Computed example of a mutant assay.
Amino acid sequence: MSFRGLLAYPITPLTPDGAPDLGALATLVRSAGAAGVDAVTVLATSGAGVTFAPEERDAVVRAAVEAAATSPTGPMPVNVAVSSVSTEAVVRAARAARGAGAAGLVLAPFSYLPLDDAEVVALFAAVADAVDLPVCFYNKPLQTGYDVSPDVLARLAEATRVTAVKDPASLPARPDGRAEELRAALHGLSVDVGLSGDVALLDGAPAADAWHSGLAALAPEEYVTVRRERSTGARTRGGEQARRWLLDVARELAAARPVSGLHALATSLGTPTAPPRGPSLPATPDVAASMRALVARRPVGAPAT
């Protein structure tokens, strides 16, 4: 079940010369598994996947798959984001991910101009023809200019290998999300409805079938606690402390450049990494200082990654 539960999206740590730090990535993946995360997704937005050459992507996927296979709690699925600006590049990345041991694919459809419904359906059909892996539709309308409708999602579920959707838990036009609307349109089709957006997730979003989070890969113990309590309706003092701390971190990340902020947070938590590759710029000194201050306030009993 690669798209249910809590899905962590790790950064791709970098060495001082800008190469993927496979050892640091493996540590993040194993830590997520040990904390009880259900699956990880590499090379998505948090992992800056579009900045890496094919051979680098392949090395990242293989390192994550190997680390997940030796998770202390048992093997953990590894999904791979395969978004690119051309269908050919997406299919090539999908085939490579399958060859490297991916359990599933995560695909946000985009190009230089916003796509329309027919182009999106054709893209996912091409992936389905090329690779026999389940696909999660990564819906990020503010970034791509395309917002999947419930009807198109149902078409994709019927005609392609889409078995899940990652939808924003909150948008300006729909602050309460639309998980139930998507479920209703699917008419019983087996599609996992997952939500993303750390601030909204931590500030009252429903548990849904899945939460997708970049922050969960850097603070997995706290995030697993919050997710479990939201799913069961239980409330503990420790869980509330974890939620409040995570929400403070998420709000700081939302106010910063997201990938740069995650790299600064990772450094503060003890994961070695250089800043992300350009055109992303390093986190400002103020953001880095804020991350260090937040980590210093991490709830007692939650060890650094």
Rank of each mutant, 00 (worst) to 15 (best):
A159M: 07
A185G: 11
G188L: 07
A185V: 11
E158I: 06
E180I: 06
R178K: 00
A169E: 10
F137D: 04
K140Y: 15
R183P: 11
L133G: 07
L195I: 12
L189M: 14
R178N: 13
L133M: 10
L195R: 09
L182E: 01
A164F: 08
A185F: 08
D192R: 13
V193W: 01
P168T: 09
L171S: 10
L156S: 05
D132A: 14
R174A: 14
D176Q: 15
T160P: 02
D132H: 03
D192H: 13
A128Q: 05
A185Y: 10
A157G: 14
V131H: 05
H187I: 07
Y138M: 01
E181K: 09
Y146Q: 02
A164T: 02
D167W: 09
V193C: 06
D176N: 12
S149K: 11
K166G: 05
E181I: 01
K140V: 15
V148T: 12
V152A: 04
E158Q: 12
D176C: 10
V135N: 04
L156Q: 03
V152I: 11
D176E: 14
D129G: 15
T163H: 01
G145Y: 04
A154Q: 05
V193N: 01
V135D: 07
R155E: 15
A125H: 13
R155D: 15
A184Q: 12
P175H: 08
A185S: 12
V152R: 08
Y138P: 02
G177L: 04
A126P: 04
A128D: 14
T144Q: 00
L153M: 11
V165Q: 01
L153T: 07
D129M: 06
L142R: 13
Y146W: 11
L189V: 06
L133H: 09
A164V: 06
D129F: 05
A154Y: 04
K166E: 08
Q143W: 14
V131F: 09
L133K: 03
